[in-house]
Design a protein around this nucleic acid. Sequence first.
DNA 1: GCAAAATTTGAAACATTATAACATTTGCAG
DNA 2: CTGCAAATGTTATAATGTTTCAAATTTTGC
Lengths: 163, 163
Amino acid sequence: MSARAIPYRPHNHDACVSQALTDARAICQRQNARLTPIRERVLELIWQSHKPLGAYDVLGELSTDGHNAAPPTVYRALDFLQQHGLVHRIASLNAFIGCTHAGENHTGMFLICRACGNVLELTAPSVSTEVRKAASEEGFRAENTTLEIAGLCPRCQSEPDHE
Amino acid sequence: MSARAIPYRPHNHDACVSQALTDARAICQRQNARLTPIRERVLELIWQSHKPLGAYDVLGELSTDGHNAAPPTVYRALDFLQQHGLVHRIASLNAFIGCTHAGENHTGMFLICRACGNVLELTAPSVSTEVRKAASEEGFRAENTTLEIAGLCPRCQSEPDHE
DNA sequence: GCAAAATTTGAAACATTATAACATTTGCAG
DNA sequence: CTGCAAATGTTATAATGTTTCAAATTTTGC
């Protein structure tokens, strides 16, 4: 690699968030989907860091807001956001993260740092190709791929315990 | 592919189970690990089909046996079995399946049929290679890979609703 | 063999994650 | 404005997983 990927270096995170929201609005408009205030707020909360957020964490933040939401509210918003490719669910963590390739039609691959908790989403065409190949060799029709790599990100390999 | 993989065709399943148990005993002996009656029984239950089994399903079966176990009993046994490479946890299903490559040092890749629920475990070196490559291009030190493909197995593509 | 230490299991309570079911409100089309 | 569909509110409950401490069992050092 030449430069460290976004989650692994300091950056203006507010810019990430506002870009994500802008993109989301455009995508929803194109798809005739309604990015309601709750959905947008949930997306914003999810994007507040590059660490995945649990549904109940989102719920907690919403309560802080004044919204007094119940679990279904959050899960419904998350379902919507997933459906429209705006967030991903990380199965190995039961948590959600903003999609950094929204709109692009991609198969995500996630690098999850076990030390700092940050997650980098990649599109790795060569991986997808090999996966498809392996599946089709077994006569299996692949529809959905979960690919999550746990390990140590560049920063945490040198300096431990990054927040 | 030439012949369908084991989970996708009729076979003497008792043979799968007893082979798995025999292997497990040998592996534990080699590792100085204690395959106690509970652990062995849990492994046997997990192996009763090529479909993943939830922890609480295992618990239910144990109760049927007369064992009256509590959740920690099952989770502890499952942890042990995972630790020694005898079962895998399927994160996208919150369920467990017998490892078909026990002892082999491998990175599992799972083909999960959404129709019949059967799971085939593969070792796909080319996939692992590409994954490692993609991770290291980001300077990420990969430790653990979760790779689960949902889709339709060969049987369920033609005849639906196999049990 | 035997006592101390370590591992394994039992048991109760609890924590976390997710969904079901039904009522109410909101946005939109005619 | 009216009626329908989509979205949200509300309550309860289901499913999955963990903490904690006590009791039993196995191993180990002597």
